[in-house]
């Protein structure tokens, strides 16, 4: 992938396909370490699937939730000296509290670090395509703290769809302005 934000889009799409009602996308940047966490309350994976989830030649085509996505993210994290872990609770074993959590760490000063890129565009693309599920986005560094929770927006919008063009444009500006805001002002 050219940007880590594309991996975010890809992995979060898997969460939506796994039936998640809420997908959390959390990025923290501290002391040169970027940590990406994608947490969903979807159907989760069985232990058998989880064991093989980072094998690029293993796929469960019937559910289409495993493929190249996680192996790529793992490789991109490890290229920088970081790592990726996946934990999951399968709905069949955990009728309550099921879901998947993907955590990847990246050392930002490594020459092979892939920049985060246009993460705002990934968030708006997710909301545009899946207006009936919720996303929580949180990006924190020493310089800024950007957040968006579609549940809050949904409360204001009532029956106006989250993927109405005007709303998507508002979300795009709302996020970009949070990045540009001067923390000292």
């Amino acid at each position: 992938m050219k940007e880590l934000s594309l991996n975010i889009l890809d992995i979060a799409e898997n969460s939506v396909k796994a039936g998640a009602s809420l997908t959390e996308i959390r990025v923290t940047e501290k002391d040169g370490l970027l940590t990406l966490r994608i947490i969903d309350d979807g159907c989760g994976m069985t232990e058998e699937v989880l064991r093989r989830v980072t094998d690029p030649f293993y796929t469960t085509r019937t559910t289409r939730k495993v493929g190249m996505g996680l192996p790529l993210l793992k490789m991109e994290a490890e290229m920088t000296g970081g790592e990726m872990t996946v934990t999951s609770r399968y709905v069949g074993d955990f009728p309550e509290g099921h879901g998947t959590e993907v955590t990847a760490t990246f050392y930002e000063d490594h020459i092979d670090f892939i920049p985060l890129g246009d993460v705002v565009s990934s968030i708006t693309t997710l909301i545009q395509g899946h207006p009936d599920t919720d996303f929580l986005f949180d990006h924190e560094s020493d310089a800024f703290h950007v957040t968006l929770d579609t549940r809050e927006l949904r409360g204001i919008l009532e029956d106006v769809p989250l993927n109405s063009y005007e709303v998507i444009m508002w979300i795009d500006s709302y996020l970009r302005e949070q990045y540009e805001e001067d923390p000292l002002s």
């Binding site: 992938m1 889009l9 890809d10 799409e13 190249m68 790529l72 395509g129 063009y165 998507i168």
Partner: peptide, 20 residues
């Protein structure tokens, strides 16, 4: 198409252009 293959090849800006 927004699977890994599509996203890696550049589907995100294509989708956004259509929407806009």
């Amino acid at each position: 198409g927004m699977a890994t293959c599509g996203i890696a090849a550049g589907a995100r800006p294509v989708l956004n252009e259509f929407v806009q």
